[in-house]
């Protein structure tokens, strides 16, 4: 590694950051393109040939159409706006909560094509044709989703900041697995932080919505 030429080159480039030559030598790798081969990805060449030209938009607003809770909403957004921001600020769907804004608490959970994701870490511009379901979209015909009803009956909400995210996680779990175990519920909510400590009631409520009798004092016995 102690190649004098490399060292001098690095110091000559100090601060510019983008020059790569000294680094490449240091890392002991032949420059990109030195070893040419074909990709191991099947069918890539054909797919590539058919690709449409890319779009560049922004930094100002661009109009997009989002599919939200069964409706189509046209909204002008900046590329930097997260889905959470667009839902809350542009569309006034404030049921979705932002707590950490970093992907670390899952309060902002929404479904994209039925898959729970953090809306604070999703750019709205990237949602495309995927169907967005928010907490506002769970109730059908004025009737709460069974998980929501169970949350009410079991007092699974205190301050309520984590609750929309919890409900979205638990309702999604029941969609994938109508008869979950306690451990499945814990896994499904393992990214949902609740400051108030509703977890035991969230477990009770979710299992109740699945028709499974369970009380928080049984945690040990039910451990899977």
């Amino acid at each position: 590694m102690k190649d004098p030429e490399e060292n001098s080159e690095q110091s000559a480039n100090a601060g510019r950051g983008l020059s790569r030559r000294g680094f490449l030598k240091g890392a002991g790798i032949t420059a990109a393109g030195g070893v040419l081969m074909t990709s191991g990805i099947a069918g890539l060449a054909d797919a590539e040939a058919a690709a449409p030209a890319p779009d560049t938009v922004g930094p100002g607003r661009t109009s997009v159409t989002l599919k939200i809770n069964g409706d189509k909403k046209k909204v002008a957004i900046e590329p930097r706006q997260t889905l959470a921001e667009v839902l809350r600020i542009e569309l006034n769907l404030t049921g979705t909560k932002v707590v950490c804004d970093r992907g670390a608490c899952s309060a902002c959970t929404v479904w994209l094509d039925n898959t729970p994701v953090n809306s604070c870490m999703t750019l709205a511009i990237e949602v495309g044709k995927r169907e967005i379901t928010t907490i506002e979209g769970l109730a059908k015909n004025g009737k709460l989703h069974p998980v929501q009803e169970a949350f009410v009956a079991h007092d699974a909400s205190m301050c309520g900041f984590c609750t929309p995210g919890m409900v979205m996680s638990c309702a999604s779990l029941l969609q994938r697995n109508p008869k979950p175990t306690l451990d499945d519920v814990k896994t499904a909510t393992s990214g949902n932080l609740c400051r108030c400590g509703t977890y035991p009631k969230v477990f009770e409520a979710t299992l109740a919505a699945a028709g499974i009798a369970y009380s928080q004092t049984q945690a040990q016995a039910a451990k899977g």
């Binding site: 970093r102 670390a104 814990k186 896994t187 393992s190 949902n192 004092t217 945690a219």
Partner: peptide, 18 residues
């Protein structure tokens, strides 16, 4: 200061409570 760094209890840390 963030929640992935400032650690609080999560679902897997919940004991049986009587």
């Amino acid at each position: 200061a963030n929640l992935d760094q400032y650690k609080i209890l999560g679902s897997r840390e919940v004991p049986q409570i009587d």
